[in-house]
Amino acid sequence: MNIFRLTGDLSHLAAIIILLLKIWKTRSCAGISGKSQILFAIVFTTRYLDLLSSFISLYNTSMKVIYIGCAYATVYLIYMKFRATYDGNHDSFRVEFLVVPVGGLAVLINHDFSFLEILWTFSIYLESVAILPQLFMISKTGEAETITTHYLFCLGLYRALYIVNWIWRYYFEAFFDLIAIVAGVVQTILYCDFFYLYVTKVLKGKKLSLPA
């Protein structure tokens, strides 16, 4: 464990909790892509199946359980409890265009052709694009609530910190995993445009809105 991975994990946790609190406090999931949240629930479920087979540390196990629990809680709030506030018309990204190619890629490019390993690879590839329905929704409506942009910023920061973590591990532990790194870099690039808007607008006190 290094400081970059720890702060990355905490940033990830902060993002998840910010989103849950936003929905809970405002009693509304307006502007939130339910599709992205379903994809994240699938990501955590397929990646953390090893909870049942291997124990790494108390930290590792508790974070996995918290991530999975929060992911399903978020999906429940969007599609059940606050369903009336869900903006399905604007959440129109076709997720099959992500899930099917990602599934194919996981079967083709993996470390080991075994059930758990392919699911893990699938989760890594899927995570890298899971935010696309959310970004698509923002580009479609042309705006995002400030709290939603904080959520996205924490999520993007988590990915950026993981890249620093991998550079650290490469130098000090001679450890690297090409699948995780390539997918992680792709994922971080997807946030670049958003980071720019966040710094130039939200941090200056303005609402994030895109030109029509």
Partner: peptide
């Protein structure tokens, strides 16, 4: 270098 999945990462 080890080219394997980082099992300790989240």
């Amino acid at each position: 270098c080890h080219r394997k999945r980082p099992k300790d990462e989240l």
